[in-house]
Design a protein around this nucleic acid. Structure first.
Lengths: 134, 134
DNA sequence: TATAATACCTACAAAATAAGTAGGAAATAC
DNA sequence: GTATTTCCTACTTATTTTGTAGGTATTATA
C-alpha cells in the first residue's frame, strides 16, 4: 500500500485546517475528522516539524496552515507521513543494502514506478481534496 | 510499499524459469535466486493456483512456465502475490467499509492512482526483467 | 494568582501484516 | 524400495502500523 491511515489522517487534518481561517485546536479537528485524538497529536507533530502548520500554545491555542492550500502537494505531505513512498525496499529503506543493485534488471523498473507515483501525487494539492461548493 | 519481498521473489522465480527450457526443481531455483526454500514453496503454490506455472511431481519433477515470458505482465503476477495492489485501504481491502465513500473527495484520487500504477505495471513483462545478452 | 485549555513530549501497548519454518504426506523416476 | 520431488497444514518470528497513557510547559482569562 502506498498511503497509510496515518497519511490519510494527515490529509484530513490539513484540509480541515484549510477550511478555517484562524487557529484551530486539535481536539476540535480530531473530532470533526474522526481521527483518534492522541494519534492526531503524533501526526500533527510531524506536520509542525515539516513546517506545514504552525502552532500556538496555551489556552485558545491550536494550529493553522503556513501556506495556501494549493501550495501543499500530496507528494510533499505524504513524504512526511509515510515511512516510505518507494515502490519497494529496493528503492526505499534498503536501497543501499542490496548487493544485486549494480546489475539488477528489475531495479530500473521500480525507479520508474517511483517516479510515476511521485509525479502523480505532485499533481494534486489540498484544494483537490476539498469538496467543491456549488 | 507497493511490491513486497514476496512479490519480488515471485518475479525472480518466474524469470529464472523463463531462462530454462525444461522442468526445474524448486530447490535449484530457490538456491540460484537466493529465496529461502520453504518460503519459495509457499510462493510457487500461489503461482500454480494462478496457472502461471505447471508442476511435475516426483523425482525429476519441478516447475515450468505455462506461457511465453512476454505474456506475463508485472501487474498480473503481483496481483496474485501482493495482499493488495491498491494505493490505500479505501480502494483495497476496506473499500466496502468506509461510510465516507459516497462523498469522499479523496477517493477519486486514490482510484486514479490505482489505475496509474496498474497501467504502469501492465506495461512490463518478465522479458523486461531478464538481463539482455550483448 | 488560580484555573482551564491548549501544545508538546516520552514511553509504551496492541493489532495487523509480512516473512520465514517445521514436519510431514503423496507422487514418481529409477 | 529409495531418493527426489511437489504439496499441504500449521506454526513462529519479525516488523510495521496504529494507537494509548501519563504527564510537563505554555498561555488566556476570570
Amino acid at each position: 500500500m502506498i498511503v497509510s491511515t496515518k497519511g490519510r489522517y494527515a490529509l484530513r487534518i490539513l484540509t480541515a485546517l484549510a477550511r478555517e481561517n484562524g487557529c484551530v485546536p486539535l481536539r476540535k479537528l480530531a473530532a470533526a475528522e474522526d481521527v483518534p485524538f492522541k494519534y492526531a497529536e503524533a501526526i500533527v507533530s510531524l506536520l509542525v516539524k515539516a513546517d506545514f502548520v504552525e502552532s500556538e500554545r496555551g489556552k485558545n491555542g491550536g494550529y493553522h496552515l503556513t501556506r495556501a492550500p494549493e501550495e501543499y502537494t500530496l507528494a510533499e505531505v505524504l513524504r512526511v507521513t509515510e515511512t516510505s513512498l518507494a515502490a519497494t525496499d529496493c528503492t526505499g529503506r534498503k536501497e543501499a543494502e542490496c548487493p544485486r543493485a549494480a546489475t539488477c534488471p528489475t531495479l530500473p523498473v521500480w525507479k520508474a514506478l517511483d517516479k510515476t507515483v511521485y509525479d502523480f501525487l505532485s499533481g494534486y494539492t489540498l484544494v483537490d481534496l476539498m469538496p467543491k461548493e456549488q
